[in-house]
Nucleic acid binder design. Structure first.
Lengths: 335, 335
DNA sequence: GGTGATAACGCAACCGATTGCATAAACATA
DNA sequence: TATGTTTATGCAATCGGTTGCGTTATCACC
């Protein structure tokens, strides 16, 4: 394949001149630029990015870390779409995207350090679950910009991140349910360990306050993100005297369990029981009835994380900041 | 960060010597090798892969293409797992993995050509859906090894590929159903456009022949991979005089529809109706009852595709070949 | 016509590795 | 002792770009 020397020779100029026309230097006359461009086309030339990397000390590559622990959990279908969002922006910048997985439980930084030390990456996007202080230390030490997917919690220093606006999303779901006439709304979701569940619960509570409803703690259930727990808690809730007439599930698996419970107790959905969960389109649409959800534009989430990363790459002075992606209600059949 | 010169200086040798010890040349004395290694540790040195790439004319990177059209279809959760399988082998080889998406409908080769021309990739793994003849032409032209995920169909030349053994998988599912006592087994699946469905149908038919059953064409329904079509075809099948007592669904979405149909007609699963579909663990496990499936080790599929790719990279004489990944039956509740 | 400014380009060093060839020392052999 | 081998290492070119600095030609102006 043709290299810069071939182009220079064919155009009767030095490689410097070719390089400058590629990089659009003003000190090359228009005539020579055009001649060089036409030679480049003839020879089917494209610059060797490896060589470019060596001189410019940039890899033209960013890395997406995925958490293998999440792989089998609820996040799975999300991450795929996030990746596409990231890709879109990365390729727009003429960078390429490396993926690598790490385990949040094993606290293993080796892959990322290996990539950095080999000068293979200019920036990193990684789930907050992976962002241990040891990880931050490494990234800072080598001066590699990074952005977290998900709001990190309990960190001393500030970092860049993007997350779904879980609180507002749930508030909006509540307002939607109120408007539909539901009055006694419950909440099923884990809230101790998972930040996003906590935020969703916050939104649930703040919407109740806003609407002058009092918070009934019996309506709030800590519940793992599984069909089984969703089912059990729902059965339990429905056997009480004072039942909810609608429920917000922090996850679609929970909603599946809740729907099953309603079926067994012959409650009609959405007439007797409204249900809203968070979006996992595949599950929401295959459910019967289909689940009304808080829709999260995860593609946008990925895109924004990449944008933030490039801001840091292009301007090292840029200060770290968080960004919340807003949600909408995707009306299906359960509310 | 320390480079090879720093190491050479600190160890009192030339960069050649350092390079040779890194690459384990036999012509360096053990004593100097040890000294150099200890200096490397002291200085926290690792070789700059970019520079290595430039001299060795290898990018130490392979690319995984994903088909954005498939993104929203059944393959989605598969690809994620395939990616992990690929990753495992790629990082074992001390390569890194680039991902890029292409659309099978738009027939757009630009990203891949851009990566190749920029010398950013040494090999490509791509879904058969992307493997148009134009794509092959490009890959051959630049002499880039590639492996298809899925058996390509209608190509003139031979290429390397890995695929699930769909035929044998379905045969095994049939034998399993026979053993369970089912005698009238139907098949729901699309078989015109999708090779994997055709193969599954082949397996269905060959198992019937093997067991001396005759093929009842009314029991074979062309059916898109959706819950809706699965439901309709199942209702239709169940309203006939001669009903099946078990059914094989080429996809889990179909199975969801079939289960719904059984519920409405008050058929007990698995007593009155056995159901086996192909694996999508998330859907299979959230279904009620949980779906018995033909399990596909997609991680292994990815791993094997990467292995094949590296065989081609390491030995350009290596001839292209296909590889089938065998399946197993994952017994859950529907059969 | 001499001087200075400006425009357009080339020279050569450099980025961090690899490698063919040369070389020096140590050792063996005649 | 002179010569041939072997072992261990260094020199310098090379991969394909980039860039500071120098050079040449052209033109304006006095």
């Amino acid at each position: 394949m043709a290299n810069i020397k071939d182009v220079a020779k064919a155009a009767g100029v030095s490689t410097s001149t070719v390089s400058r026309t590629i990089n659009n230097s003003p000190s090359i006359s228009l005539a020579t630029k055009e001649r060089i461009f036409s030679v480049m086309r003839e020879l089917n030339y494209s610059p060797n990015m490896i060589a470019k990397s060596l001189t410019n000390n940039k890899s033209y590559t960013v890395t997406l870390i995925v958490d293998v622990e999440d792989e089998k959990s609820y996040q799975n279908p999300f991450f795929y779409e996030i990746m596409h969002g990231i890709e879109r922006h990365v390729y727009r910048k003429e960078y390429s995207l490396i993926v690598a997985n790490l385990s949040s439980t094993q606290k293993n930084q080796s892959v990322i350090e290996w990539l950095i030390k080999g000068k293979r990456t200019d920036g990193v996007i990684l789930p907050a679950s992976i962002l241990s202080s040891a990880m931050i230390e490494i990234l800072r030490k080598y001066n590699i910009p990074f952005v977290a997917i998900g709001e990190p919690v309990g960190l001393k220093e500030s970092v860049s991140w993007v997350d779904v606006d879980n609180k507002k999303g749930t508030e909006n779901a509540m307002y939607y349910l109120f408007e539909k006439g539901y009055r006694n709304i419950g909440f099923l979701g884990l809230n101790k360990t998972q930040l996003f569940s906590r935020k969703r619960l916050e939104g649930y509570k703040s919407a109740l306050s806003d609407e002058q409803h009092e918070i009934d703690n019996d309506f709030i259930r800590e519940c793992m993100n599984t069909k089984k727990e969703g089912y059990q808690h729902m059965i339990d809730l429905l056997q009480r005297d004072h039942r909810p007439d609608a429920i917000i599930c922090a996850d679609s698996h929970i909603a599946f369990g809740a729907i099953k419970a309603c079926g067994e107790l012959h409650l009609r959905i959405p007439e007797d029981m409204g249900i809203i969960s968070y979006d996992n389109s595949q599950l929401a649409e295959i459910s019967d009835p289909e689940i009304t959800t808080v829709y999260v534009d995860v593609f946008e989430l990925g895109l924004q994380s990449a944008k933030q990363l490039f801001e840091l790459i292009e301007d090292p002075q840029k200060i770290d900041q968080g960004l919340l992606i807003s949600t909408s209600i995707k009306v299906r059949e359960t509310a």
